[in-house]
Write a protein that binds this DNA or RNA. Structure first.
Lengths: 228, 228
DNA sequence: GACGATTTCAACCAGGTGGTTAAACCGTCC
DNA sequence: GGACGGTTTAACCACCTGGTTGAAATCGTC
């Protein structure tokens, strides 16, 4: 009997972190994809500990035993979902990095692309933040491998900022801190959505808030980086 | 038999959200305080679902049954811990709001105070973010009550920013968005600590990183708010 | 020191959890 | 048809979890 859970390997073999924005895990069968989606939803909403295998099975419209047939168990399933989510996340990071004539446009495109990705993939964000909060044993390896990869998105962004500094487009700043600040402002309010929604509950719907927030972030960061 | 779990009420009766920086829940007995600390540690590290009552009991050096004797059960205990954590958090928010002659100094004091509080109370932050991620049913009521309170820290901060706008110290900005951005940059890197530590693992120890980050945040925000 | 109230404990329980198993199903190739 | 591989299912299990119990130890007080 060929072990179907061997489908975890194909993605591991590749050393490239191609920032292709596509995600749908191609090697996955229809059933596996359904399981995967259900698992992402459950893990993203409840966290690893709060998630119930039964709920995932129900949501995927299959028997609970199938989960252990396709994925070895909860840990495996979670690790798989997390790995793909991480990849998707990194891909979006790269996809938001467009080639633009000015740094201003580059920054604007990045922020807008990043926020819209986060808006459309809230579950991914929740999963990643959740894992970080819970200790992040899985985070370490993925981030480390991504960091050392040559053409990886974060490195590209660092280079972009450094180039802007040398060109005098922005004042001298630490690129790492700067990226962290941008990402913070773009992600944090999604992670804290319940709080934010209460604070701004009289200020229109969520989508409108996200839009105004995008503009605010760009203005703040861009001016904050302006040369003296 | 007087129900000891009635100790949940004394804090509820007060309508004030006095931003006193003190925290030690005075009405708590020594045992209760031990339980409380152990619970905060466990909940903060593992989240509500991941936390184990047995672990809390062990950590507090007491029998598991005591938890149900002093607090009704897991839900009660969690709610209590969360409520006090929320209060402590809001208190720190107010404590960081000092009276300073210039807006620049006010902002610097706030950022430094806030970051140092977060550094010294990482568990509190993790608990709050964790609760937000997990749906935040508890968040809503606390935030709502805090929002409507007149002298509450966030409102004070809003007024402070608005005054600075009117005085021409900073450009016209949405105070809510601005506060959210400040808080994001000050908190997010703590919530994502595992990731951040890997990315900057060759850049000295954590404390040094926090220090440099504080300076970076201030520079970025202050310049980002500068009048045209 | 007796007595009642409070605090502590070991043992126990019901329910839910992840995980397993053995049999049934189903298309396909001989 | 029937053997065979991958797939699906219902029933089942061991274990862990939060929660309970009733009795024993401890404390305050008269």
């Amino acid at each position: 009997m060929t072990d179907p859970s061997a489908n975890t390997s194909p993605d591991d073999t590749d050393g490239d972190a191609t920032p292709s924005p596509s995600f749908d895990v191609s090697e996955y069968s229809e059933t596996e994809q359904q399981i995967f989606d259900a698992a992402l939803a459950e893990f993203g909403r409840k966290g690893k500990d709060g998630a119930r295998m039964q709920a995932i099975a129900d949501s995927a419209g299959i028997n609970k035993a199938m989960l252990h047939y396709y994925f070895r168990g909860k840990d495996q399933l979670y690790a798989d979902v997390f790995r793909h989510t991480m990849q998707r996340f990194m891909a979006s990071f790269g996809a938001s990095l467009t080639e633009a004539p000015t740094f201003e446009e580059t920054l604007r495109a990045f922020i807008e692309g990043y926020v819209s990705f986060v808006r459309d993939n809230e579950l991914c964000v929740r999963l990643i933040v959740s894992e970080n909060l819970a200790g992040g044993t899985l985070v370490a390896e993925h981030v480390r491998r991504m960091k050392t990869t040559e053409g990886a998105p974060p490195r590209v962004m660092v280079d972009r900022i450094q180039a802007a500094v040398e060109d005098g487009d922005i004042r001298p700043v630490d690129p790492d801190h700067t990226i962290l600040s941008i990402v913070s402002t773009c992600i944090f309010f999604f992670a804290m959505r319940p709080t934010v929604e209460v604070l701004h509950e009289d200020a229109g719907d969520w989508d409108a808030f996200v839009t105004s927030r995008t503009e605010h972030i760009f203005e703040l960061i861009y001016r904050g980086l302006a040369p003296r």
